[in-house]
């Protein structure tokens, strides 16, 4: 296994910064977490369109793919590749098919946890 220690540091830095931006938005504005998440996903799509996010993924690895902006980036990347392959039809299936792994995992695991666990008193 090859471990790139510099990449780990960069992942920490970018991941942390993306979280701090959201924290400032939560504390200083009236935006609720749901708005932040939607904003992050859409920003990820936009930043991919501007060509910025793919560079960030290359530079910071998981620091860019793990935050929800990375989810938006994957959606955009998927739609681009689908269009190059299938033309206009790709507009419809590209995004979700590229992110299918994450979405299916979230659904499937949530179902599993709901079978295994009960909510607890706080």
């Amino acid at each position: 296994m090859q471990i790139d220690y510099l990449l780990i540091l960069k992942a920490f830095l970018i991941g942390g910064i993306l979280c701090v931006i959201a924290q400032i938005l939560i504390d200083k504005t009236k935006l609720t977490p749901a708005y932040i998440l939607v904003g992050y996903v859409c920003s990820g799509v936009l930043l991919n369109g501007l060509g910025i996010y793919p560079k960030l993924v290359k530079w910071a690895g998981a620091g860019a793919t793990v935050p929800l902006t990375g989810f938006g980036n994957t959606l955009a990347e998927g739609v681009k590749q689908a269009i190059e392959k299938d033309g206009a039809f790709g507009i419809i299936y590209g995004g979700i098919s590229a992110t299918a792994a994450g979405i299916t995992a979230a659904i499937l695991f949530a179902l599993l946890w709901s079978i295994l666990f009960k909510s607890k008193n706080k």
Binding site: Y40, G102, A110, F117
Partner: peptide, 20 residues
Amino acid sequence: GAGTLVPITGFANAVASPAI
């Protein structure tokens, strides 16, 4: 706070908690 919200972990929690 946003440290667990913004990474994909926040999304997973948002799906799992209402499911449970």
